[in-house]
């Protein structure tokens, strides 16, 4: 920061009695030191004079970038499947482990306001195109719309009892990166895609279980992966042959 006016610093030989009207030259305020009173010094080059700041500048840029980088983990990282913790082939078990914060403890009250480690073993056993969708638990039957094809994704799960299964996403990823069915609600209106249809609540009730989830896709899409996650950031990927 450059200041135009510095506080009055009585220099050597400038100690006049305060209060007395000094005879200053026009344009000068009391306490100012005439420019020609400075001791003549050899001028150093601009680079030498500002060397400290020139060194500090890149450091400041790095610090500033680091300070604002909290947005990446605060806003982007937790929202979406950004951390692949396991990648296996179709038919092989994948281990999905990730922590989440349980704010309310809706299904398991003692977990309220704690960070919970969720560990699930999942195996995608088959991904097949189907001609018809089964009748949904609630509501009218869903007909596969014109211009769409439907896939049935079968997943086998194994986890401790009362593992939270809410926000489950079973996504088919096409070769071009299109994500089919990445909503937490599937085509039949189920909003708990990793639970069996008869399950009550959002936690697992058996040590092992199997679900079939239906996903609409474009007819020409070449499905290459299945992604499984619970809102993220951790997820597992199953590669289709």
């Amino acid at each position: 920061m450059t200041t135009l006016v510095t506080p009055a610093v009585p220099g050597p030989g400038q100690g006049e009695p305060p209060g007395a009207a000094p005879s200053l030259r026009p344009g000068m305020l009391p306490g100012m030191i005439p420019p020609d009173a400075q001791a003549p010094r050899p001028r150093r080059s601009w680079g030498r004079r500002n060397a400290v700041w020139l060194v500090l500048l890149p450091i400041a840029i790095v610090v500033a970038a680091g300070a604002s980088s909290f947005r990446v983990w605060a806003f982007w990282w937790p929202v979406g499947l950004h951390h692949e913790v396991d990648r296996v082939a179709l038919g092989e078990p994948a281990h999905l482990a990730g922590e989440y914060y349980d704010a309310f403890g809706l299904d398991v009250p003692e977990r309220a306001q704690t960070t919970v480690l969720r560990e699930i073993d999942a195996t995608v056993t088959s991904v097949e195109q189907v001609d018809q969708l089964p009748a949904p638990e609630y509501g009218d039957p869903v007909v596969i719309p014109d211009g769409s094809v439907a896939y049935a994704v079968q997943v086998h799960f194994a986890a401790e009892l009362r593992t939270d299964l809410s926000l489950c996403q079973i996504t088919l990823v096409a070769e071009d990166g299109t994500r089919y069915g990445d909503s937490t609600t599937d085509v039949l209106g189920s909003s708990n895609r990793c639970s069996t249809p008869e399950a009550e609540g959002f936690v697992s009730e058996q040590p092992e279980w199997e679900v079939t989830s239906f996903v609409l896709a474009d007819p020409g899409a070449e499905i290459t992966q299945v992604r499984l996650g619970f809102g993220g950031p951790e997820h597992v990927t199953f590669e289709l042959p």
């Binding site: 209060g19 009207a21 000094p22 030259r25 026009p26 344009g27 000068m28």
Partner: peptide, 15 residues
């Protein structure tokens, strides 16, 4: 008066 004098004494008319 002292303050005014101290400030204004060496000012130009415009100032």
């Amino acid at each position: 008066r002292r303050v005014v004098t101290a400030v204004a004494d060496d000012m130009s008319t415009t100032q």
